[in-house]
Amino acid sequence: MISQIAISISQIIIILALAPLLSGIIKKIKAFFQIRKGPSIFQPYYDIAKLLRKDSVISENVSWIFHAAPVISFAAVLTAGLIVPVFISQLPFSFAGDLIAVVYLFALARFFTALASLDAGSSFGGMGGSREMFVAAMVEPALMLSIFAVALNVGSTNLSLISQTVSAMGLSAVSPYHLLAFVALFIIAIAETGRIPVDNPSTHLELTMIHEAMILEYSGKQLAIVEISAMVKQLLVFSLLANIFFPWGIATKISAVGIAVALLVFLIKIVILGALMAMVETSTAKWRLFRLPDLLSISLMLSFLSIVSFIIVNGG
């Protein structure tokens, strides 16, 4: 019982601690590809620390939604953090939620951010919210189908079970449907984390921004919470990718050595994924909003192919 609670708490702490680091690492790798020096990988920590010390300026038009939204989003993302395997596959709360629940929790976070974006009455906020919801409407069917593909492969939507099964299968788990589903989910991860072909996390250009436009009215501590939840969400999406498709090295039992190794392996995995993401970001340009459905229908088709090839290969 105590070990279970310890696992849950340590998982939350590790997620909170690693999330800004991942952001910093991706920025650094991106800078490397763009032949810049780039900020230190600890910059996001400094940013958040600074924001937490600052006072905030709040619009006079806002209601309680504006104040509550960052906290609710953060809570939703942290709840998802309880059921996404990070370093150990046997999570105490794994029975409480599965892959679908994670999707809905992310949707809840997004819903409240979009709601808050409308609250201040600024037209930028509305623009961001509108775009975010449009992208979400395209992402969610694709995400559902890719989950379907993953669940088909393993026979369950329970995340702990998925990562356990796949890691027990070893290298024989690599199959065409496995890879296709991975690519499909990777495309969705780009959209979910707001990265380049979909959204540009590093600009405040009104013509293109989506997520940044939504949180434009936030400042100080509230902005810090919004930023942290975006980072945590990013880390969770990455650990989903890592631990659904390549869970090898994850600790299956509670042991000090196993967990230490698992943490190290996890770090390596997310750095590799981050490098991949940075490569994609550097090599493509931001797409026009109305071309995004095309990108997501590619993801949709890949999941579909994954399902079809699973059925064909396993003799449907």
Binding site: V57, I58, S59, E60, N61, A120, G121, S122, F124, G220
Partner: peptide, 10 residues
């Protein structure tokens, strides 16, 4: 610890 101000009206 916060300041109330009007929303920027473009």
């Amino acid at each position: 610890k916060h300041q109330v101000y009007e929303t920027w009206g473009c």
